[in-house]
Design a protein around this nucleic acid. Structure first.
Length: 498
RNA sequence: GGUCGCGUGGCCGAGUGGCUAGGCAGAGCUCUGCAAAAGCUCGUACAGCAGUUCGAAUCUGCUCGCGACCUCCA
């Protein structure tokens, strides 16, 4: 199978580049994880699902992937107030509990929801609070390199100084001079040398709950420091892939680059920057701050005004992967309904595939059919190699599903393709569906209705004295460790105590 | 205001100089006790205008509409 090399769109160069790991066969991936202060919404699920799929594919290709995704459990100022209050401590005060309780609660929620989406847990999942010392050290390093300064107990990165030596704005295309308009009234603006300067360490106000000792007094780490330290600590000074949402490009990722370069002599921390696009609602970006979000939990329960029914985790995963990661994806009940049917069609085909057996002797080969199926398989790889185009992969899987259905209903057509093609089709279909796209079968685990239905048939058969059927049904129960109880007033079942 | 992106058939959503995207919904047919599933066939879509070209949805220019970032956000 001749296919082009894997290419990914690098936000830094604004073009597709051939993926070549720094230290093959090892690949390091860092993805910005959640800030654990409330329930994640479907927009948060997108990077989780997409970068999971990328990780799965790289693993499939034979790379040894170390996947790091952080938990932000401190920092990040609130956007809707100007109090400069820590987001997590604000939520904690509202609920009258400890900040760490908030962190633990929402971390667990995140894990549980992401698990059901069949997202593999990271190799390393570091927390910001677990790396306070490293963050202080990094701030000190940046000061000693001459790119940071202390002001009123806080530490800032001197953007103008940095900009004189390195290209600030290389990732986002931002020009410092144009940033000055519309700058929000942030706490501590007057402490800065320049409005574009950003905090590496913030002095804690007296009422601030989350605080640590530092050379500059009690405070907490700045907004971007944690990702710089946790990515390079576990993946190296320069690593392969850094992922996250497009909305993090500026300022977050731009600042990460600046912090890294300011502390390491100007080495670029990341080879490939990958950014997923946003999920929209009626054309508008879904976000916590605008309030137009649907949480993952609401999606699973169906309890939301925009939803007519619950949607299963795999439906949601299919929905996300049905669009290319760099396109916006419009959230809608109709879109989800379509994804649900399409996903089930794929799973039905998968089950049928398990029942297909290639005939002992091949028939007359239909070269056209043979080539068509091989083409579907090749196209899946081509699509993945063209900037991880999962939407195109899914189209090919649906094409293969149609062939599988035909083979099932017209077995004679199966002998018209070669045994090799059949094996290729089976392996590729299963690998891409389950291992790469991570679409697993959602089996119906509620057996109660089947038991009740079978009991009804049992009672009917017994009334008609059809004892052969009666015995048959009883044996079904027996083989599943259940017994049927004939009572005076009907039938019932119980666990077999033997 | 600055930077960037988008506008594809009823809906979602790929593609991007000539070669089938795919799914959902809809119509017809096959199969069929009923129903479903499945298979086959069908719509001749690319915001508008002008240009480049043998040929453009795909390139260029303009117009209109929408959005993202510039502030916490995936």
């Amino acid at each position: 199978m001749q296919v082009p090399p894997l290419k990914v769109y690098n936000s830094l160069s604004r073009q597709k580049e051939t993926f070549e790991p720094l230290n093959p066969p090892f690949v390091g991936i860092y993805v910005c994880g959640p800030t654990v202060y409330n329930d994640p919404h479907i927009g948060n699920a997108r990077p989780a699902v997409f970068f999971d799929t990328l990780r799965r594919y790289l693993t499939y290709l034979g790379y040894k992937v170390r996947f790091v995704r952080n938990i932000t459990d401190v920092g990040h100022l609130l956007g809707d107030t100007n109090e400069g209050e820590d987001r997590i401590s604000k939520q904690a005060r509202l609920e009258q509990i400890e900040p760490m309780e908030i962190v633990n609660h929402y971390t667990q929620t995140y894990h549980q929801l992401i698990d059901t989406l069949n997202v593999i847990r990271p190799s390393i999942e570091p927390t910001a609070t677990g790396h306070i010392i490293e963050q202080i050290e990094l701030a000190q390093k940046i000061i000693s390199e001459g790119y940071g300064y202390v002001s009123n107990g806080s530490v800032y990165l001197d953007v103008m100084k940095y900009k004189a030596d390195y290209p600030y704005g290389e990732l986002s295309g931002r020009i410092v001079e144009e940033l000055q308009e519309g700058t929000r009234e942030l706490d501590g603006q007057e402490e800065k040398k320049h409005p574009a300067d950003f905090a590496l360490w913030k002095k804690a106000s007296p009422e601030h709950l989350m605080r640590w000792n530092s050379p500059w007094g009690e405070g907490f780490p700045g907004w971007h420091l944690e990702c710089t330290i946790m990515s390079t600590k576990y993946l190296g000074e320069t690593f392969d892939i850094h992922g996250g949402g497009m909305d993090l490009m500026f300022p977050h990722h731009e600042c990460e680059i600046a912090q890294a370069k300011a502390s390491n002599g100007g080495k670029s921390p990341v080879k490939y920057w990958l950014h997923n696009n946003m999920i929209t609602v009626d054309g508008q970006k879904m976000s916590k701050s605008s309030g137009n979000f649907v949480t993952i939990g609401e999606l699973f329960s169906g309890k939301h005004d925009r939803l007519t029914q619950p949607f299963s985790p795999m439906t949601v995963r299919y929905f996300i992967l049905g669009a290319h990661y760099r396109s916006t994806l419009d959230f809608s009940n109709d879109g989800l309904l379509g994804a649900q049917k399409a996903y089930k069609r794929l799973m039905n085909a998968k089950n049928i595939l398990g029942k297909l057996a290639y005939p002992a002797s091949a028939g007359e080969l239909n070269a056209k059919a043979d080539e068509e199926i091989q083409g579907f398989c090749t196209n899946m790889v081509i699509a993945m190699h063209d900037d991880v185009n999962t939407a195109r992969v899914i189209a090919q899987l649906q094409n293969i599903a149609r062939k599988i259905n035909t083979f099932y209903q017209q077995p004679e057509t199966l002998a018209q393709i070669s045994a090799d093609t059949f094996a290729l089709m089976r392996d590729m279909f299963l690998n891409f569906t389950e291992n790469i796209l991570g679409l697993k079968e959602e089996k119906n685990t509620n057996v109660e209705p089947f038991v009740v239905g079978l009991l009804e048939l049992y009672a009917e058969a017994k009334a008609k004295k059809e004892y052969e059927t009666v015995d048959k049904i009883r044996s079904y129960f027996k083989s599943n460790n259940l017994i049927i109880k004939d009572l005076k007033n009907g039938v019932d079942w119980a666990y077999d105590e033997n």
